[in-house]
Amino acid sequence: MESTAAGLRKNGDQPPVVQYDGVVKRFGSLTVLNGVSARVNKGEVVCLIGPSGSGKSTLLRCTNALEIADGGRVVFEGQPLPKTEGELRHVRQRMGMVFQNFELFPHMTALENVAVGPITILGANPAEARAKAQMLLEKVGLGAKGGNHPSALSGGQQQRVAIARALAMDPDVMLFDEPTSALDPETIGEVLNVMKRLAEEGMTMVVVTHEMSFARRVANWILVFDEGRVIEEGPPAQIFDAPTHARTQSFLSHLGWNG
């Protein structure tokens, strides 16, 4: 499947940014990932969909080694993920991550949240880092909110600050872990719009999501998960309009998806 798919895919002729080779992850006796292989090309938006507990978020966390895979390997920009925490930190600095519950740092203002990475981790000049943070806040539509603490922001605003915080590290890939699942319906759109613009700018993105219309419109490639495996993959048109796997069909129809 890989060889036929590669030709169809965006930048499929170039080496992938992230590649998963038979990744296995167990929690005790429970096997959460049961040999997942997949690739993420440069500039692609890859959406991971599937029922809850099917392993999507775990694969995302294995990508930047927040979880360590028990078997198989994750390759980032041609190098397998290193083993030591010190080396892993350098890899993580090149991957941005956005969490379901935002996880902004409550004791810092929005601007400080965005600037803290470059200042403490990269040793950037504080004034320059803050200027860049301001620019990123403007980019996500929150230029006037830099002085606010997270407690004074809505969920959608917090998540946009979290995206700016990840972007401040100039990552090569952005990992989104159900970024809109904890949001009120009226603020989901503002977050998805920011993500869509990022995609249009060519950012490489791996997105775990239940927002099927976003996946349909923005993704270049869909991975469908079920019980720790990728049961089907392909471009959105194929997955949503002509799914071949029965489990994909039943998952999509459960969500009320009808094309």
Partner: peptide, 19 residues
């Protein structure tokens, strides 16, 4: 989740505790 977010940014253990 706070530790996870800080680790995802690439902070070291000491930085996570301090900051």
């Amino acid at each position: 989740g706070q530790v996870r977010a800080a680790r995802a940014l690439g902070m070291s253990g000491a930085q996570i505790v301090r900051k």
